[in-house]
């Protein structure tokens, strides 16, 4: 059965990159450009994994993750943060985010993390 992934990032280039990456691996991909759009798409799309950027307009990644986890407690969320945001990483993990990856990330490494989490 095909796995579903929701990619949330305000940068079009990142969304395009990750969309192509996971579509090649036969994932069903959906994208959102900010936290608010992500929250509204989760219930309908029912993703297995959410790849969430931290810094976004409207609702940031941490707040969106908290809102999603409040409704879908078992949702696997991977947060993408900038280097050195240790407080953000700590807060995200405490909020229930499963994993944090720092930018710039290696796409193969990110794919491994996602596949590993999807297999759990």
């Amino acid at each position: 059965m095909q796995k579903k992934i929701l990619i949330v990032d305000d940068q079009k280039g990142v969304r395009r990159l990750l969309e192509e990456l996971f579509k090649k691996d036969d994932w069903i991909v959906n994208t959102a450009a900010d936290g608010r759009e992500a929250v509204s798409k989760v219930s309908e799309f029912q993703p297995d994994i959410i790849l969430m950027d931290m810094k976004m307009p409207n609702i940031n990644g941490l707040e969106a993750s908290k809102q999603i986890l409040a409704v879908h407690q078992d949702m696997s969320i991977i947060m993408m943060t900038a280097y050195g945001e240790m407080d953000v990483i700590k807060n995200a993990l405490e909020a229930g985010v499963r994993k944090c990856v720092t930018k710039p990330f290696d796409i193969m490494n990110l794919k491994d993390i996602v596949n590993k989490l999807a297999g759990e």
């Binding site: 079009k12 280039g13 990142v14 990159l17 990750l18 192509e20 990456l21 990330f105």
Partner: peptide, 13 residues
């Protein structure tokens, strides 16, 4: 025409 997002894409791919 869209240099920032294209370069972002290229820096990852």
């Amino acid at each position: 025409f869209q240099p920032a997002s294209t370069l972002k894409y290229l820096s990852g791919s």
